[in-house]
Design a protein around this nucleic acid. Structure first.
Lengths: 346, 346
DNA sequence: CTTTGAAATGTTAACCTTAACATTTCCGAG
DNA sequence: CTCGGAAATGTTAAGGTTAACATTTCAAAG
């Protein structure tokens, strides 16, 4: 009478296959894992029967025995920023033979979430983790503990330094210096502002430092009221720019360096809404080369970061670290390039 | 003499904590899992010691006992399409209490990869899977097998119907009909083309059918040479549009419906490179409301799909299905809306 | 027909946790 | 005190697999 039942999700085990054929589980295990010392005929029977019964190896049990899950955790601040999907793509490519599977966690720029996520990943016994950190203060003790625990850890993009973990990223400070310099040479006079995320996050600090380097090198003064520390997304950029626009006209910057493209895009929106023009009234440059950068009403001059490559290298490094305990700890900076478009005033 | 060793990644177990305190593992287990029948003092000692020793529960072992991994697999065709990160965001939100962790797999529109990924997820004993399928023919036997196996499965966006799985998406056919109709009313005469992905994929077929519905309803003829079946990304759109542009001028469509925004964006690129203008020479509409749509040189008229909501509902449905075996199988279509911009000729 | 040794197959224990049942401890009532 | 019973704690087995060791089978050599 009962309708067709939804299959009860109990899976076939080695033991069950073995029982049907009247052999030991060990023989079935050997046959299925392509181990030697199984008679050709026996192996064939086993494989056929396993197939027929719909046997799927239980990786949970395997993991318990081997202490390896073939799983890596990926922790990122914001999956919706075009940079990160590209990174994830690169990561996937490095694991493409499908040996490793990826746990993805989005932290929404919250370290607390990050920490919880990593704890959960540790509990699930991932073989290693890839992290772009939202850590916002100098207390690196959590990550020190992780490193000490022996869990392979590679940072990418947003790194935590000097705790004994590898890191794949770009030279944010130098790239920021370059793009700021570009802006300075175009705008011999006038103030230049900086729209930052929290400077406790490494990329914000590094990019700000690069900005300062360029300003100093060209004898330009930094006006504290033109440096806004807010967030990393469009909304933050919009709000931060509005703060600058609220300044008296003579204090208002003539050009702005944004910590990343989403912030620059938000800022451009604010400028437009204020009835001003980019780059005529205010020039702006970003960082990332977001998918939207070239499409803006004034195409955005920015720093191209090799997102895909960063992901790929980070995953490769992590897997090497997992598979070889002597893999050295390493900092790797990939090449960036200036993408000159219109928003800088060129 | 040996330098500081990288911690050997062996974790502390319940047994070890128990040994140190001279109690049984069971007591430690009870204390740590907040079970009753543990003396207040004992519990406190155990928690302190566990903390001090850096004990982390081994979820692998727990999973083996409970047959639950608190893990769900998410299978998507292309993480770089802005639609999917939004979906993933929505999924994460539904699991936000962090009870479930997400395995993300990108299939690059390949069903073979999809199948391998799902097999791997099954082996890892995920509690359920969320799939946007790239299945390209009518042979649904693989998914029938999955459903039969009892693994909770919810499709989203790109569904496989009539196999007993829930599905969360939009009414592609109707939305496509609406936007095509909009185009028809603006362009009383002239040919209208369709740029499709493989019509063996459900969304391509549904959207094409909606296109046909609108054309028929308005007595418009469909010209086979104006219907190109190619792919789902920018490159495909670019190439498909070039095929249309290669037609003799009198056979060339005056307006084009694209299967999604990436294709529309690629097509707009081709039109621009051909020295023609959108919407003046060729009008175009898309589907998805990609993050770039409003930024195009002629802002793209498109169908807004509630990506975040789709992910959220799909994950919610999946979790319900996992946690309650009587959860009904259901098809759910979320609201779309026409986003009228300039590319259609408005 | 025995011996020999490799190949095939089997058995046991372990991985870490928890459910289920068993035992001990302890406190208050009689 | 002693008993009863609840609370605290302990023991055993199971979950699916594999490593390590043990046994059986079998074919070729003597």
């Amino acid at each position: 009478m009962a309708g067709k039942e939804r299959g009860s999700s109990t899976s076939i085990t080695l033991k069950e296959v073995a029982a049907v054929l009247g052999v030991s589980t060990m023989t079935v295990s050997r046959a299925i894992n392509n181990r030697p010392n199984v008679d050709v005929k026996t192996r064939q029977d086993i494989l056929e029967m396993a197939q027929k019964m719909g046997y799927t190896p239980n990786h949970v049990a395997k993991s318990l025995v081997s202490s390896r899950t073939y799983t890596i955790g990926v922790v990122i601040p914001e999956i919706s920023h075009s940079f990160f999907p590209d990174v994830v793509h690169g990561i996937e490519e490095a694991t493409k033979d499908n040996t490793y599977q990826i746990f993805l966690t989005n932290t929404s720029e919250s370290f607390e979430t990050e920490r919880q996520a990593i704890d959960a990943l540790r509990s699930k016994r991932v073989d290693g983790i890839l992290v772009s950190s939202s850590l916002k203060d100098q207390d690196t003790s959590y990550y020190q503990m992780i490193v000490k625990s022996g869990l392979p850890l590679v940072f990418f993009d947003r790194c935590v330094y000097d705790i004994g973990a590898s890191c794949i990223g770009v030279n944010d400070r130098e790239a920021s210096r370059q793009i700021t310099e570009h802006l300075i040479t175009l705008h011999g006079h006038g103030r230049i502002g900086f729209l930052s995320g929290s400077k406790k996050v490494s990329i914000a600090k590094d990019r700000y430092d690069g900005f300062v380097d360029a300003m100093n090198a060209h004898g330009r003064e930094i006006h504290p009221e033109c440096v806004i520390e807010h967030g990393f997304n469009e909304k933050s950029g919009f709000e931060a720019m509005n703060m600058l626009l609220a300044l008296p006209v003579d204090k208002r910057p003539r050009a702005v360096v944004a910590v990343n493209d989403p912030v620059a895009i938000g800022a451009m929106d604010a400028i437009k809404k204020a009835g001003l023009n980019v780059p005529h009234d205010i020039a702006i440059v970003g960082f990332t080369n977001d998918i939207r950068a070239e499409l803006m009403y004034s195409p955005l001059t920015t720093v191209h970061q090799p997102a895909h490559e960063i992901g790929n290298q980070a995953a490769t490094k992590l897997i090497r670290t997992i598979e070889n305990k002597d893999e050295p700890i390493e900092q790797m900076f990939l090449e960036t390039s200036l993408v000159i478009r219109k928003s800088c005033g060129c």
